[in-house]
Design a protein around this nucleic acid. Structure first.
Lengths: 124, 124
DNA sequence: TAAGGAGCTTACAAAATTGTAATCATGAAA
DNA sequence: TTTCATGATTACAATTTTGTAAGCTCCTTA
């Protein structure tokens, strides 16, 4: 899925931080570029691969597949395959995945506040 | 501070996401390797450069200075310089910085739940 | 006048993440 | 038998993030 040099200082530091701080651990799991947006799409209803692709304007199939696979491995979502042709695959949040809702809604809120503050300051 | 190719697809996608999703915007500001841990250190009291350096086992001065500078630019914290020799510099969270507490505490909590779940599953 | 500590800064290099483009498997329908 | 759509995978290259090592500036004290 991805190759990391297991014993680079980089990796050691990452592991250390994720070990002493569950927040860092959480960000390690769901903090990369597209995952948050995938989450927001799946929040209300399961969606299929192609729907996500169109919704996430600009994502490549590679990135989408890669992120979905990681999120599945980390039990954030479930992959449901229908035995049809052409294949139909649907992604759905797991309970622990859905439990992110409260966190992300709050973060979204903080972001809005921060942006307002910054643009207000820019007017001075 | 950092040089980014303004019009790489990478940058375009980042901007797009941060534009439509305040959560992505927020992560863009405080989602990098050390920032969360800097935040957790500063949560209870202001700290000086060298204190942070020792507390964040493994961080280099470059990374610490870089992250602190960005967080100051983004108004997450305030830099307070005392006119002493040798220099004494203290970092303190701003109100909007402190407002992250609720979010990060919740994230920390989610991380703990997630880790428990994963290790429980590993026993099967 | 030389050393020393705190807080940076710089040039450089390693590593990780993200993107490009081409290709594949499936099996139904043309 | 060829074509088609969906969901994926692969080899490769660009971009970004992080780390290394050295040096710099302030003034004070020896």
């Amino acid at each position: 899925m991805k190759k990391t040099k297991v014993s680079s200082t980089n990796q050691v530091n990452k592991n250390y931080l994720e070990d002493i701080c569950m927040g860092a651990y959480a960000l390690g799991i769901i903090g990369s570029r597209w995952k948050l947006s995938i989450f927001f799409n799946l929040k209300d209803r399961p969606m299929r691969f192609s729907e996500l692709k169109y919704s996430l304007n600009g994502i490549t199939e590679r990135m989408l597949a890669l992120n979905l696979a990681e999120m599945e491995k980390d039990k954030i979502l479930t992959r449901i395959v229908f035995a049809e042709v052409p294949a139909r695959v649907v992604y759905e949040l797991t309970p622990i995945g859905k439990a992110l809702t409260a966190v992300w809604d709050q973060l979204d809120n903080w972001g809005r506040q921060h942006k307002d503050l910054i643009s207000a300051d820019a007017l001075l």
